[in-house]
Amino acid sequence: MKRYRIYINDNTLYIAATAPELATEIQQLEVQEFNFQSFYKKISKVSGKSFLLMDADPKALFQKIKKSCLIIKAAGGLVSSAKSNYLFIFRNKKWDLPKGKVEKGEKMKQAALREVEEECGVKIYTNEEKLCKTYHVYTLGAKIVLKKTNWYRMTVKGEPKLIPQKEEGITKAIWLSKADLAPIVANTYPSIMDVLEAGRLLEQRIL
């Protein structure tokens, strides 16, 4: 059964047929009365909370939420070098992975490759399978945006020097081994944690 996880600031909304097994407390919401726009406004001042919409058809419920938002598509990459290190960037005071918006007429996979090459000054050797999709919500003027990001596994030849795209607010671009991810985990976005789990750099959570 399909399950969804939507990030709103550092809060999480789960949409699933069964409750996830979480270490933290989760608040179940009433599906019949649920309005995503109202919910978003209510939790804009809440931090670090988990919420659950439990329904026999989570996909239909997720589609209903999508229709109430402006959808923006983005794509990015988890890039590994020949030395088995991984590419990370530092932007807006947090560790991140290279990604960006999909341009008109562009395929998601092509956008991912273009964004990684532009943001880090590298040439991608292979652009492989899709690792996962992540969803997060933010406001753009008066509209509530649901951003869908497709993430792909990529490789480079050797371990090239990285050139961070400073005009995009990227102040650092570095290679890190799987054993050196503690600083990343301590200061990154929940959606990036999902990508690291999908890439088997971290242990998989239940949902």
Rank of each mutant, 00 (worst) to 15 (best):
Lys161Asp: 11
Pro20Met: 01
Trp151Tyr: 01
Ala75Cys: 09
Lys148Ile: 10
Val195Ile: 15
Ala56Met: 14
Ala173Thr: 02
Lys101Gln: 10
Ala82Arg: 14
Gly105Arg: 15
Leu52Lys: 04
Glu30Val: 08
Thr139Gln: 13
Lys133Gly: 04
Glu167Phe: 06
Trp95Val: 00
Tyr86Glu: 03
Ser84Gln: 15
Leu29Gly: 07
Tyr125Gly: 05
Pro98Glu: 02
Leu146Tyr: 03
Thr18Phe: 12
Ile206Glu: 15
Gln165Ile: 05
Phe90Asp: 08
Met154Tyr: 00
Leu201His: 09
Asp96Phe: 01
Ile15Pro: 12
Val116Trp: 00
Leu162Thr: 07
Lys166Cys: 03
Trp151Glu: 00
Gln204Cys: 04
Leu53Asn: 09
Ser80Met: 08
Lys161Ser: 09
Met154Gly: 03
Asn9Ala: 06
Leu61His: 04
Ile89Ser: 05
Leu97Ser: 02
Tyr125Asn: 13
Glu106Ile: 09
Lys109Gly: 05
Leu29Ile: 12
Asn187Lys: 12
Val79Ala: 01
Thr12Cys: 10
Ala16Val: 09
Val185Asp: 13
Ile72Val: 12
Val145Phe: 07
Met1Pro: 10
Ser80Asp: 13
Ser68Asp: 15
Asp57Tyr: 12
Trp151Gly: 03
Lys93Ala: 10
Leu162Asn: 07
Lys133Ile: 08
Thr18Met: 14
Lys172Leu: 13
Lys93Val: 10
Gly48Phe: 01
Asp194Tyr: 02
Ile8Gln: 03
Leu13Pro: 02
Ala179Thr: 01
Thr134Val: 09
Gly77Ile: 00
Asn11Phe: 04
Lys64Cys: 05
Thr139Cys: 08
Lys143Thr: 06
Glu128Val: 06
Val116Leu: 04
Val79Phe: 00
Gln32Arg: 13
Asp96Arg: 02
Glu33Arg: 13
Lys64Trp: 03
Arg205Ala: 09
Lys41Met: 11
Lys45Ala: 08
Lys94Tyr: 11
Tyr4Val: 08
Lys104Asn: 11
Cys120Gly: 01
Glu118Thr: 02
Gln63Asn: 11
Leu146Gln: 04
Lys104Val: 06
Ala17Val: 08
Trp175Gly: 05
Thr155Leu: 07
Gly158Asn: 09
Lys73Gln: 11
Gly121Arg: 01
Gln37Ser: 09
